[in-house]
């Protein structure tokens, strides 16, 4: 698909885990302001793909550029880039020894160099935005999964990222908490944030995505507008996948 103003570009990316070829010549372009949802069966490489974008996973060949800059190797440059790329994890990964407020403020202070009160003010704003202003002084373990994930989103947003990566953000949540997280993500999408979302939430893919990328066995099989993909998948693999998950 042609993309007007590319923010993330992956070209011919390859990666192995031992014998397993998890990413096979993967090329993907994400435009500024675009919401790209990556779906596919487990083991298809979609989480790995998401994690290569901020180099939590290294790649063996190919190129990744973000906002025109090639992904730097380990060091200062990489840290600087990661500060601009927000990431939300399946298991939330809130800092267990810090309060909610400190979780959101920590990197603002240490990485962005903001003053503590300035950082805390911004943190409270963001917590307000995800509906958790009243929980600021609690520890992560005192919150529900859905609340923790919303704090994690606020923590990533506090860095004012250019793009947000979501690695199965609702997969570890109870069904009734999934919606509160998806609503925050919907709002972000409406506000024009560039997002790459690995998920199993087809409803979210339909309503919020500009494009759906379907992965299987380490390859991108389809890359299309959501409505087209869900109503009329081209590949057998996608038809099979959709028939299995949409049956119930």
């Amino acid at each position: 698909m042609a993309v007007v103003d590319p923010l993330i570009e992956l070209r011919d990316v390859n990666k192995h885990y031992g014998q397993l070829h998890v990413l096979q010549n993967v090329s993907l372009t994400v435009g500024r302001g675009e919401v790209v949802v990556v779906i596919g069966p487990s083991g298809s490489g979609k989480s790995t793909l998401c994690r290569t974008v901020n180099r939590l996973e290294t790649i063996e060949s190919g190129t990744i550029t973000i906002d025109g800059q090639p992904l730097p190797a380990e060091g200062k440059g990489l840290a600087g880039l990661r500060a601009d790329v927000g990431m939300v994890f399946q298991s939330f990964n809130l800092f267990a020894h810090r309060t909610v407020l400190a979780n959101v403020s920590l990197a603002q202070i240490k990485v962005r160099g903001r003053k503590r009160d300035e950082a805390d003010r911004r943190s409270r704003e963001l917590l307000e935005r995800v509906g958790l202003a009243s929980q600021a002084d609690k520890y992560p373990a005192q919150l529900s999964g859905g609340q923790q994930q919303r704090v994690a989103i606020a923590r990533a947003l506090a860095m004012d990222p250019k793009v947000m990566l979501f690695d199965e953000p609702t997969s570890a949540l109870d069904p009734e908490m999934i919606n509160e997280v998806l609503e925050v993500m919907q709002q972000l999408a409406r506000d024009g944030m560039t997002m790459v979302v690995v998920t199993h939430e087809m409803g979210f893919a339909r309503s919020a995505a500009n494009r759906v990328v379907f992965m299987a066995d380490g390859r991108i099989v389809e890359d299309r507008a959501p409505e087209e993909f869900f109503t009329n998948p081209r590949s057998e693999r996608a038809k099979d996948f959709l028939s299995k998950i949409l049956k119930h």
């Binding site: 200062k76 880039l81 790329v85 990964n93 920590l106 990197a107 240490k110 994690a152 860095m159």
Partner: peptide, 23 residues
């Protein structure tokens, strides 16, 4: 300490020393 803690810190732009000493 679960690896996710370090990953989260790095994903926020903290360097090795910051990740180790603050998280």
């Amino acid at each position: 300490v679960p690896t996710g803690q370090g990953e989260a810190a790095r994903s926020l732009g903290m360097n090795f020393g910051q990740t180790l000493s603050f998280v």
